[in-house]
Structure formats: structure tokens, C-alpha cells
Simulated assay, not measured.
Amino acid sequence: MSLISEQVAGTAREPEDELSAPGGTPATEVALPWIEDTDKVAPKDARALSKMFFDRLQTLEEGTHEYQYARNTLIEMNLTLVQFVARRFRNRGSGDMEEIIQVGTIGLIKAIDRFDLTREVEFATFAVPYILGEIKRFFRDTTWAVHVPRRLQELRVELAKAKEELSTRLDHDPTVKELADHLSITEEEVIDGIVAANGYTAGSLEAPSDGGDSAATPTRTLADVMGESDPAMEAVENMHTLAPLLDDLDDRERRILELRFGQEMTQSQIGAELGVSQMHISRLLTGTLNKLRTGMLA
């Protein structure tokens, strides 16, 4: 499954007859125009239509046919933003343009899900940093030979700069303590960063793993003895990071998260449970998720 389909799984556009009343008029209180081919929508018209669709999207319940139609149409109408940003990376030499556009589209989807018309900012201005961030993260992560936590990837860069600066100043290779003092971090963190740097390059899987050199004792390669990666490791890592952040939330924020992701209730159902509107739940949920996201990235 492509990166894009992973992000929008379950939100494919429904058939037109499920969104429209007889005669082609959308069967909703506030009608949304049916856009058959978003490629034919002029940029100026796309901006005006996007505002209309965003305004309507805020009043729709997740999971409904019209919600899916409005969200997917916004994605399709604004794909030119992804193509515009992706062109800046066409000569980077890692990943083909189609893959870069897929990654950038993930950023576009995140921007659509988080955009609020009350911000009084153009959607393009809001969306480009999301698109750019996803593409940059893609290039940063795919240059590593093995998975390394992002904080250690960034520490490796800081250590490299510090080593170069201190080597010139001290006229010798800096010690772990000198690096730690220079960066105002612990010696253990410096060691973690140095170990993580080993993940930036990889040896050949065909390299010998033992000293066997005869027909009777054939040489085993690294591929012969290498274990498989555990896909659950990243989930464990994320859970350890998330746990203390959840403890910092207030009771209402934790309750809303439990109802939304634990009991898989819709925003409308949560609103009815707590005695508030679906729009209010949407704002509270967005704020809570942004708070957790900021904490995890930090």
C-alpha cells in the first residue's frame, strides 16, 4: 500500500449518487458543488472552492459520505502545492519524484486535517511548511542505514560540528567530557550520539562473519546470521515517549482521548456523552493531539 493510501485509507470518494440528490444537487443543507475533475479547476477557482469546502468540512461528522467527499476533494484540488514544493528536491538523488510527491501529500493531508479558517491565513501559506517538513523528514530518515531515533540523528549532527570546532581550537581530537561540556549535555548522551553515528553507514551483507576459509568450513556472511527487524520496536519507543505526556493532561483531555481512540466513538457521540457540541469536541481533540505531538517531537 502506498504512503498516500495509508494516510487516507477508508476515505475514498464515494459514488456520486450517494452524495447527490436526483438531478445532481448534493443532498445536504449547504450544497457542495460536485467536482468531477479537479485537474480542470483553475488555481484562482481552487482557492475559492477550498474555502467553501473547509467551511463545510468543519460542520460535517467524520465518516459520513459528504465528509469523505469534502476532504478528498480538498486533497485533490491542492495537490499542485505538493508538486510545487517537490520540484525543489528533484535533484537530491534520493527517491524518485513520484515517491517525493507521495511523501509531500502526507504533509498536505495533515495540513487539511489541522487547518482552521479562523486563523485568517491562506491555506497555501499554512500547508507549505507541513509539506516541506514531511519531505525533509523523508530525506533525513532515508539517508540512515538503520533506524535511529530522531533525537539521536540530530545529536549526531551537533557532535560532528562540535568535534570540528574543538579539534581546531584544542589542536587534538576532543574527549567525551570536552564534547559534553561544549554542548551542555551529559557524557552518556555524547556516547549515545557516537554509537548512533554508526547507523549512518552500513557494511555489506556479503561480508564474512567468521574465519572459515575452506571448502569444509565455508565462510558465513553477515546475511546468514543477521536477525530480522522487529516492527514493534518503534511502537514501544513511541509509547515510552507518550506515557508521561498523557499523565500531564487534565481529566477531560484524557477522557476525550479514551472515548475517541479507546472506545472509537465519533466526535458527535463524544459530544453527546459530555454534553457539548461536536465542534467543541473537535477543537478540544485537535488541541490535545497538537499538545502531545509537540511533546513527542521535543
Rank of each mutant, 00 (worst) to 15 (best):
L3A: 06
I4H: 05
Q7E: 10
A9Y: 07
A9H: 05
P15M: 06
S20T: 14
P22C: 13
G24T: 14
T28S: 10
T28V: 13
V30M: 09
L32D: 03
P33Q: 07
P33T: 09
W34D: 08
W34Y: 11
I35S: 08
D37L: 01
D39M: 02
D39K: 06
K40Q: 15
V41T: 02
A42T: 15
P43E: 02
K44R: 11
A46R: 06
A46T: 04
A48K: 09
L49A: 05
K51A: 12
D55E: 10
D55G: 11
Y69T: 00
Y69K: 03
Y69D: 00
T73N: 07
T73Y: 08
I75C: 03
M77R: 02
N78L: 12
N78K: 02
L81A: 04
F84E: 15
R92T: 14
R92P: 01
M97N: 11
M97T: 14
E99G: 00
E99H: 01
V103G: 00
G107A: 00
I109K: 01
I109G: 01
D113V: 02
F115Y: 13
R119L: 06
E120T: 08
V121R: 15
A124W: 03
A127L: 07
A127R: 04
P129F: 03
G133L: 00
K136A: 12
F138A: 04
R140K: 15
T142N: 07
T142G: 03
W144D: 00
W144L: 12
A145E: 09
H147V: 10
P149N: 05
L152P: 07
L152V: 09
E154L: 15
V157N: 12
A160F: 09
K161L: 11
K163D: 08
K163Q: 14
S167Q: 12
T168N: 14
T168L: 13
L170F: 15
T175Y: 14
V176F: 00
K177Y: 12
K177T: 15
S184A: 11
T186P: 05
D192C: 06
I194Y: 05
A196H: 02
G199N: 06
Y200N: 04
T201K: 14
A202K: 03
S204E: 13
S204H: 10
P208Q: 09
G212R: 04
D213Q: 11
P218K: 10
T219F: 03
D224C: 01
M226L: 14
G227A: 10
G227R: 11
G227K: 08
D230S: 14
D230H: 11
P231L: 02
A232W: 15
V236P: 06
E237P: 02
H240F: 08
P244G: 09
L245G: 08
L245Y: 03
L246R: 05
L246D: 08
D248C: 05
D250G: 09
D251K: 01
R254V: 00
R255N: 07
I256D: 02
L257R: 05
E258R: 08
E258P: 02
L259I: 07
L259M: 13
F261E: 05
G262E: 01
G262R: 02
E264G: 01
E264L: 04
M265C: 04
T266N: 10
T266M: 05
Q267D: 09
Q267N: 12
Q269T: 07
G271Q: 10
G271R: 12
A272M: 12
A272D: 13
A272H: 11
V276S: 09
V276C: 12
S277T: 15
G287K: 12
N290P: 06
G295A: 11
A298W: 11
